[in-house]
């Protein structure tokens, strides 16, 4: 079984700790950095996709119904989507509430 990036011994990494597999940063879960998470009132969503465009983490994906879902394993809770949403359908909610 291949070890996860945070399980390897010091001598098991690529030379100079370079990244040799494109896209492997997706394996690093940044979701637990979050103190607030986005919640959507999908009734107000006009499917414009602005949230998808502005998310700096690529943590917003197109859902089958044309609205957007949040990947909470990677969303850091920055709130840019909520600020930019045209209809105000995204709100940031304290974690644990």
């Amino acid at each position: 079984m291949t070890k996860k990036f945070n399980e390897k011994a010091w001598h098991e990494y690529d030379l100079g700790f370079m990244v040799s597999r494109p896209g492997c940063s997706a394996e690093y879960r940044t979701g637990d950095w979050r103190s607030q998470q986005p919640q959507t009132n999908k009734d107000k969503c006009i499917k414009c996709g602005v949230c998808y465009l502005v998310c700096p983490e690529g943590a917003i994906q197109l859902a089958a119904d044309g609205t957007y879902d949040f990947d909470l394993e990677h969303c850091k809770g920055c709130g840019i989507c909520a600020t930019e949403c045209w209809t105000g359908c995204i709100s940031m909610v304290e974690e644990g509430e």
């Binding site: 011994a9 010091w10 990494y13 100079g16």
Partner: peptide
């Protein structure tokens, strides 16, 4: 051993998160 080459891309100088930074330093010292 490795070089920057668009046909076989690598990223050099990526962030060293707390889970790997100490391993990177240990490797360098060894």
């Amino acid at each position: 051993a490795v070089q920057l080459n668009p046909d076989d891309p690598v990223s050099m100088g990526a962030v060293g998160v707390p889970e790997i930074y100490a391993e990177a330093k240990k490797c360098q010292d060894e």
